[in-house]
């Protein structure tokens, strides 16, 4: 990771520490725009900072640490889609400034698309669309079509999750007519952009998980240092120390794979690199979540302690993106294919 990105990450850490864990969505959203975090990976010629996906992930790691509530990933996906399709630069500018928000689904969805005049007619149920009630448009992405649908032409249903640091919606499109101006890409172009969005999504989920897992482990070790039983700190018991050491090794490994794979982008296997990073980091995050709850004992079962916030975010992260079991399956399929 370059020193430029390290600096970005350090400053993001300070910002996130300053606003505290799971800070209010409106405030954290305003920060995203002000600090330019929405434009880090947009190419310079399109008005962005041109720092690539590595920079977006560096920020996402810190947002994972801080349990950020703003819909950063969803916003980045829309910005990537608009930027990649070369659509109107005014829209892109507004999105990068945080003045406008287009919500994107963090799940894989089936989209029915038929031609209608110059435009298309779309039907779909999009799951896991963060903060959709704040969006002017919804991004619809499939292998056939990439389109922006006005928020007032869809039905939103809030789907409350155990993780309260994100607000997800189900978005229903029933034969919505989208004019040509709203269609960003079709056919092979749409498919290529959908693949790029999946890479962005999977890497970002890995980053959120890597950051969250590291932060939760810190919280847990600190608790074990403070809590005394049998006349000594729990951190003195080797049975607990060794579990923390194992978690530490896993957290460091997940981050190493994430950063290493980001550095390998562009070699023709981006999807696999993202899937491997996502698979390991989300597995580690849920593992740290489970162990941390146990290591906290009774206090971990109370809503006032932060432990459960991380645990629930870890569990949700694991189920965002493609179905959880599809990741190891994809990695295995690639290995079997390569050795066929």
């Amino acid at each position: 990771m370059s020193s430029e990105i390290n600096e970005l990450r350090d400053s993001a850490r300070q910002v996130m520490d300053g606003s505290g864990l799971a800070a209010a969505e409106n405030e954290s959203w305003a920060l995203l725009g002000e600090l330019g975090w929405l434009m880090v990976s947009v190419p310079e010629e399109a008005g962005g900072l041109g720092m690539g996906l590595e920079a977006a992930c560096a920020l996402q790691i810190e947002m994972g640490r801080g349990l950020a509530t703003a819909p950063y990933l969803s916003a980045l996906m829309s910005i990537e889609a608009v930027s990649a399709s070369g659509a109107a630069s005014e829209l892109l500018e507004n999105l990068m400034a945080g003045a406008d928000y287009v919500a994107a689904s963090l799940a894989d969805n089936a989209v029915q698309c038929s031609a209608s005049g110059d435009g298309v007619t779309l039907s779909a149920t999009l799951c896991a669309v963060p903060s959709a009630d704040k969006a002017s448009h919804i991004l619809v992405s499939s292998d056939e079509v990439l389109a922006l649908v006005p928020a007032d032409s869809v039905t939103l249903t809030a789907t409350a999750t155990w993780d309260t640091t994100r607000r997800l919606f189900e978005v229903e499109l029933e034969g919505v007519d989208v004019p040509a101006s709203g269609v960003l890409a079709r056919g092979a172009d749409a498919e290529a952009i959908a693949a790029k969005l999946a890479v962005l999504r999977d890497f970002s989920l890995a980053a959120d998980a890597a950051g969250g897992a590291a932060a939760l482990l810190d919280v847990t070790v600190e608790y074990l240092q403070t809590r005394r039983q049998f006349g000594r700190p729990l951190a003195l018991f080797q049975a607990l120390k060794h579990r923390c050491a194992d978690l530490k090794a896993q957290v460091v490994a997940a981050e190493a794979l994430l950063l290493d794979n980001l550095g390998r982008l562009g070699g023709g296997n981006d999807a696999l690199l993202a899937q491997a990073a996502r698979e390991l980091a989300c597995t580690v995050y849920t593992g740290v979540g489970e162990e941390s709850l146990q290591l906290h004992g009774g206090i971990g079962m109370t809503s006032e302690h932060v432990c459960h916030l991380f645990l629930k975010r870890a569990m949700l992260d694991e189920h965002l993106g493609a179905p959880v079991d599809s990741y190891p399956q994809a990695l295995a399929a690639a290995l079997l294919e390569a050795s066929a």
Partner: peptide, 13 residues
């Protein structure tokens, strides 16, 4: 395949 996929991510890590 599930085990293999998980292992391959660990080997890469």
């Amino acid at each position: 395949r599930h085990e293999l996929g998980k292992l391959s991510a660990r080997v890469d890590a």
